[in-house]
Design a protein around this nucleic acid. Structure first.
Lengths: 240, 240
DNA sequence: TACAGAAGTATACGGCGTGTCATTTTTCTT
DNA sequence: AAGAAAAATGACACGCCGTATACTTCTGTA
């Protein structure tokens, strides 16, 4: 009976899956309401009408729940970005990049707790599991996707690029990038990182409420930044 | 005896000031070691060899301590930025801007907990005091300083700027800016915000450990970004 | 030197959290 | 219909937190 014959999900399994999902949902809401540090198994159990102890059959420890949340959110973001990108035609890389950027901000605003979990300060007391961290896989998907977008748009080199060989990239990342986009130049990879940071900066400032007190229309600011950015990447005429 | 005659600080007052400072120092170390969420009056008292209750003569409540920490850090950052800026000659605004940016990153790396406190997620359970938040004053100092720097460097308008009037700036901020730099244009103010975000993005990514896995030399990346940024601001030749 | 007030101590309360027992209830399989 | 496996239970141990009251010790001053 140990053999894993593929079979219909039994009722028990279905219930288990549903409960697991519900736990995560409630966890998110708790984080959203009382801050990310407020996440607690007991609180979730309370809200589910379960005994605290029962949660432990789903997630053996609090950190396991957190790890799972981070992983889920990371891939959720990566999915959203890829989806947005693919909605624009491949023949128009600039529009794809704009869509990607717009999706980044939209996702962050829609899931501030998730964004915080993935990119923000770690939860107090949280110890990521040894080996590959929970974000790593998703982070590579995201960086990889942006790399290809930037490569497609970059017809003009950046005025200043720190280096033009792979020596400044960690071996693991380098290997990964070369595997999935063999003709990517290191200059483009570095540039993609800088572009990522530009968008990331505006998004985090907005999410943490540092933009609103000084500017009423963060969306416009973000859009302007993206347009400049695409413009700088080349294709369009450099000077108006 | 109620009148506040200015007199030598008595021994008691000196001791009190020292203790207050020590409390804040220990608070910082605790945050640095075990994460910002680990800050606790009891923990501080333990490390000081005091009774938990004793802390209350210095800070009536935990949130008061946090508020004070945030305020201190905010002004510490603002001080560091102004100092760095003033070390370069006023005749060379580009160098001043570069120094400002470099100081931002340096300060953040030197005080990651502080950076988190000022710009990151709020501490779980922390309720800022009503009225003006603890960061607000420092934030205005910082934005104001950057505004002036950008104005000094910007000889060329940004290719894309959302608007060119003050309608998108909140009245409070607008008033403040106009008061201390009457000839600042709204386009420059918006641009300063975007520049701030560019630097902020790289810094936060680095601090939270999202840059290292994909790039070995964050300093070089940061420098390249700053150079591009100054270049875009004009003065230097636009192309090549 | 005597005394007021500040600073510190001891102790306690109520609440929260994670995680572990032995046990009972429910569900699936045979 | 019966027994094995899984899930949920209640009680509990332990530690942390912030905060309050009542008492003691110290310190500056008159």
């Amino acid at each position: 009976m140990v053999e894993a014959t593929r079979r219909e999900p039994s009722r028990r399994e279905r219930l288990r899956a549903e409960a697991t999902e519900q736990i995560m949902e409630i966890a998110l809401r708790q984080m959203a309401v009382d801050g990310p540090g407020a996440l607690s198994l007991r609180g979730i159990a309370r809200e589910m009408g379960m005994t605290p102890r029962a949660i432990y059959s789903y997630f053996p420890t609090r950190d396991d729940l957190v790890t799972e949340l981070i992983r889920t959110f990371g891939h959720g973001l990566a999915d959203a970005l890829e989806r947005a990108r693919d909605e624009a035609p491949a023949s128009d890389p600039e529009r794809r990049l704009l869509a990607w950027g717009e999706a980044l901000r939209a996702w962050a605003l829609a899931h501030p707790q998730g964004f915080q979990l993935v990119y923000g300060d770690p939860l107090p007391g949280y110890q990521p599991p040894p080996g590959e961290g929970p974000v790593d896989e998703a982070a590579l998907r995201i960086c990889g996707g942006l790399n290809r977008l930037v490569a497609a748009c970059a017809s003009r080199p950046a005025p200043t690029e720190p280096d033009d060989d792979w020596s400044d990239f960690p071996p693991a990342y380098r290997a990964r990038v070369r595997a999935e986009a063999p003709d990517l130049t290191p200059a483009v990879a570095a540039r993609a990182l800088r572009i990522w940071a530009r968008l990331h900066g505006l998004v985090t400032l907005e999410i943490h409420g540092h933009l609103r007190p000084v500017y009423d229309d963060p969306a416009a600011l973000y859009r302007a930044e993206m347009l400049d950015l695409v413009r700088d990447l080349g294709r369009a005429a450099p000077d108006a």
